[in-house]
């Protein structure tokens, strides 16, 4: 019996059950909500959030109040870089991918250096970096047009690639498998959990703590850059601050996936379910015909309600 209870209380099971319930609710509220094509569309949106959340996830796993608020800025920057490098031509995709990943890695590196060498708390460092990135966006935007997605990139994100499923969802699945393998089967993955649960012990055991942490922030930057690239494919052109909408939701997806913000506990599979859950919830709210104010109040209250299922802190004990 207790085994059943502990299985049911696993965050990923909670998320999956909630996803199914929400799909039923959506179908009941507006027939056609849970059809195959609609669900694929939801998954495309979820994959964008999920890819950002992948980077957020590893940074949080690494502990020491790990968090990356700069992801929103990197997503926007990457979208505009990609749009200009490819500028509507398929031949420009590879250079664009290289440029975006390099930019993401660069800002991740700066974050990582600030957090490790100067020991600036991640929240402060990435908050400051967000301001720098937003300023940089203004500079770029004044100088050059916003650019356009290459047709092949748009097809990759919005059209079926294989077995009727768009390329971006395949990409997300591959990222999910690779991250799960990395976290569970590689030395690097074990080191992440090690520094996340007890940094001092990890250091004593010979883990290069600073290098691992820098790598985590670079990973986060590169995932955010990937999401920015895909976002460009999704919308065709880049808008000002498109990435901002991913900043805090990426953290919520991680929390809904059962990863503790304290670090060292959790994984990416749950986060994927968390991202899907969050996107379905938002989508249901847009299908209901209510005022924007009511929609936001219901969304905020539902988020609080859902959080009750996840990682509540322990009660104080003497």
């Amino acid at each position: 019996m207790s085994r059943v209870v502990s299985f049911v209380r696993q965050p990923i099971v909670v998320a999956l059950v909630l996803i199914v319930l929400l799909l039923y609710l959506g179908e009941a509220l507006s027939p056609g909500f849970a059809t195959g094509g609609q669900i694929l569309r939801l998954l495309i949106v979820a994959s964008l959030l999920g890819i950002v959340a992948a980077g957020q996830n590893v940074v949080i796993l690494g502990g020491r109040e790990g968090i990356d608020l700069s992801v929103g800025g990197v997503v926007s920057l990457s979208a505009i870089i990609a749009g200009n490098v490819m500028n509507g031509a398929d031949g420009g995709i590879l250079p664009a991918v290289a440029a975006c990943l390099a930019a993401g890695a660069f800002f991740g590196l700066l974050n990582g250096l600030g957090v490790t060498l100067l020991r600036i708390p991640p929240l402060v460092m990435t908050l400051g970096m967000l301001g720098v990135l937003q300023g940089l966006l203004v500079v770029i935007r004044m100088g050059i047009p916003s650019g356009q997605a290459a047709p092949a990139l748009s097809r990759f994100v919005t059209q079926p690639l294989a077995y009727g499923i768009p390329g971006i969802i395949w990409l997300w699945i591959v990222i999910g498998i690779l991250l799960a393998l990395m976290l569970n089967r590689t030395v690097f993955g074990h080191r992440i959990y090690a520094i996340g649960s007890n940094e001092h012990a990890a250091y004593m055991a010979g883990v290069p703590v600073k290098l691992v942490r820098i790598a985590l922030f670079m990973t986060s930057g590169m995932f955010a850059a990937t999401a920015g690239l895909c976002l460009l494919g999704y919308s065709g052109t880049s808008f000002a601050n498109v990435g901002e909408q991913y900043m805090l939701p990426s953290i919520i997806a991680v929390v809904f996936g059962g990863t503790s913000l304290a670090g060292g506990k959790g994984g990416y599979t749950g986060t994927m379910a968390g991202a899907v859950l969050l996107v379905i919830l938002q989508s249901i709210l847009t299908t209901i015909n209510i005022e924007e104010s009511g929609r936001q109040m219901v969304f905020g209250a539902t988020l609080l309600l859902l959080m009750m299922f996840y990682g509540r802190g322990r009660a104080m004990r003497a």
Binding site: L248, I251, I252, S293, M297, G300, L303, G311, G313
Partner: peptide
């Protein structure tokens, strides 16, 4: 309720903003 401060107050901020829009 012991929810994590960062995410919980983000959720309440969405609620308060909705109320302000109302």
């Amino acid at each position: 309720l012991r929810l994590q401060a960062i995410v919980a107050t983000f959720a309440t901020s969405i609620f308060f903003t909705g109320f302000a829009l109302y």
